[in-house]
Computed example of a mutant assay.
Amino acid sequence: MTLLLMAAGSGSRYGKLKQFDDLGPNGEFLMEFAIYDAIQNNFEQIVVITKKENVSFLEEHLSKRLPKSIKLNVLAQELTDLPDGVTFTGERKKPWGTAHAVWTARNVINGPFVVINADDFYGQAAYKKAADFMKADANAYALLGYTLKDTLSEHGSVSRGVCEVDGDNLVSVQERLKLVQKADKIVDEDTNLDFTGDEQASMNFWVCRPSIFDKIESEFRQFLKDDERIANSELYIPLMIQEMLQAKEIEVKCIPSGGDWFGVTYASDKEKAMNSLKEKSDSGKYPAPIWS
């Protein structure tokens, strides 16, 4: 089993590269808690997707800390990483998107894997549930869901994928771009739709299979033929999975994570995150330092 962490973002709202901010009580990155939780649940490989200029630093940082039995791959997401036979000679500054970040790992992942954001904390229970699912089902995909009201920020609106489910089957994920708490309900200021807060939300914790790589490559080839999409769009991993789901190519389960989530969208979220990690370490949920 593999954990793939997406750590190629720029942290524009946070103000710096939050993936490498020392939020843990002993200077740990937030992603180190995710890696620790995965290893505790018998994940054998860690793959980190980052910017080219961060590869050497991150590889050195993690290789000094992880158990020697764990396979580590730190890969660069690059604009020049294209499907065979495809060229791109235009101009583009931002990456191709989260689906392309996952596709970057196509040559190092051979089995089931979890995809997460490197700058989110997902809770220890989520990794156990993901591991149990991958061991029990050889083919299905899954989304680890979080209760919508528990994923908001006190410091501004947030974008969340709100799930539609049928039993334990995921039907769709609808992106809501400006969710805020107003009195006893949650409102999307972009559409004026409101939610109870008890809905399951996607925080980009996906259980995937290697079949996703072929889907991404196929979509990427079409993407690169469209000048408007090249100029204004990105390839998103939830969209790839949703298209496969709607085409009945895969089955996707929605599994309540049973854990607490927090992220660091804004710089003002940092103190809360640091306090939470310290509390978890002080209570014995994590060793301190985490790699002692």
Rank of each mutant, 00 (worst) to 15 (best):
K18A: 01
M31S: 06
M31L: 15
E32F: 02
N41Y: 06
I49D: 00
K51H: 06
K51V: 00
K52H: 14
K52S: 13
E53R: 13
N54Q: 08
E60D: 15
L82P: 06
P83R: 00
G85M: 10
T87F: 08
R92E: 03
W103S: 04
W103L: 02
T104V: 15
V108K: 11
N110M: 04
V114I: 14
I116D: 07
A126S: 15
K128Q: 12
K128D: 06
D137Q: 15
A138G: 12
Y146L: 02
Y146H: 01
L148S: 03
T151V: 03
G167N: 13
D168I: 10
N169P: 05
N169C: 09
L170C: 10
L177A: 15
Q181V: 04
E189W: 00
D190T: 14
T191E: 11
F195H: 14
F195Y: 14
F195L: 07
D198R: 06
S211W: 02
S211T: 06
F213A: 01
D214E: 06
K215F: 12
S218V: 00
E219P: 03
K225R: 15
N232T: 07
M240Y: 02
M244C: 03
E251P: 02
G258I: 15
G259M: 10
D260K: 08
D260P: 14
G263S: 08
V264W: 00
L277A: 05
S283C: 10
P287V: 15
A288G: 12
S292V: 14
